[in-house]
Write a protein that binds this DNA or RNA. Sequence first.
DNA 1: CATTTAAATTGACCATGGTCAATATTGGAG
DNA 2: CTCCAATATTGACCATGGTCAATTTAAATG
Lengths: 197, 197
Amino acid sequence: MSKQAMAKAVQQRTLKTRAKLLDAAQAVISESGYEAMRVEEVVLRAGVAKGTFFAHFKDKDALMDQLIGAEIDRQLDIIEALPAPKTISEMSEAMMPLITFMTCERYVFDVILRHSGAAANAEIGPIAMTFGRHAEVVTKWLWDQPFRKDISAELQAEGVQAFMVQAISLMFCSLHNSVAPRERLETYLRAWLTPAP
Amino acid sequence: MSKQAMAKAVQQRTLKTRAKLLDAAQAVISESGYEAMRVEEVVLRAGVAKGTFFAHFKDKDALMDQLIGAEIDRQLDIIEALPAPKTISEMSEAMMPLITFMTCERYVFDVILRHSGAAANAEIGPIAMTFGRHAEVVTKWLWDQPFRKDISAELQAEGVQAFMVQAISLMFCSLHNSVAPRERLETYLRAWLTPAP
DNA sequence: CATTTAAATTGACCATGGTCAATATTGGAG
DNA sequence: CTCCAATATTGACCATGGTCAATTTAAATG
């Protein structure tokens, strides 16, 4: 035995099957949206049995975690390429593409919330990772040019995240959806990042 | 026709059936927790058919909304009876019972998040109402003795809520669950309510 | 009291996510 | 090349939330 303990590596077909499933899922989503995605439909298009799906993903949510996480990562790539915002307005502007995706469907936002604090112990999923990455990006912004100096850039970044979630939550709330999300976010950020007691 | 247009009022049995369902559900939850609740089990104990359940509640989530909302209201009753906190520490202390309930099960917190921004238009559910009420309570606290004066008490209260949710979210996250939730919340609240740039 | 009609209840049925014992395939060892 | 064990795949089956046409019941009316 050469590979000792870890036995055989993953087989070729495993990767192929996984790719087929991901492609099929992405296709369904492109056509009908995230919420409308059915496992049945995905395995049908991928040409595999239902059981195979669950051999590759713990459950439907795990697939969503991966697909939505990947999309958020794409948005973060864009955000990261931007120059560090110098004003609150620029910062909220920079965050809008991400927010737009997160609010494309109520279901998507629910999945994101459900995974943002990684559920199980020691099991950090793709979406949870993107939250970590997002915090890092914002921290970097604030590092160069902090808006306030009484607290760390990390803490400021955590607050920015909390307010982003809050602003999005209220978008979906009929009590508060009269105020535009971008405006609301800016109000929060101004109060958080440039206080003047 | 005397009652014109609104026809007959709700029948007695309607209230009885609803009460039986709520009691049965509460009993199941007391024994096994929220996540373990099954509609099947509830209708069995209530002695009604499955269809009756859905004649009284739009779906399982609606029942959860009501039960969890009622429990949050009970916690808010307690909180409201307290004297207004004078320090950040007292404030976080006052909020702990509510947070304890919200974190009794991951499932409970998920339901709360899902309903905190009322889903459908013009359909404000019990949990969404409690968020409104909670904001009012906190606003009242800050009204008498505001920690900072550059922003309104209402805005401060919204921030308190955002940070409460954030602190709870991170409790469930394996990356961050090393820090005690109460400590984390106090760090947030101090930075939010007593900034010193 | 008989009649009537809106409202409440029923339960067979469906939709869909998820399981698992059986089977098939892969890739290395001899 | 053949055989073996680890791995991947299968699909019948289950669990559970949710639907709806048919039926039963409440209570107002004459």
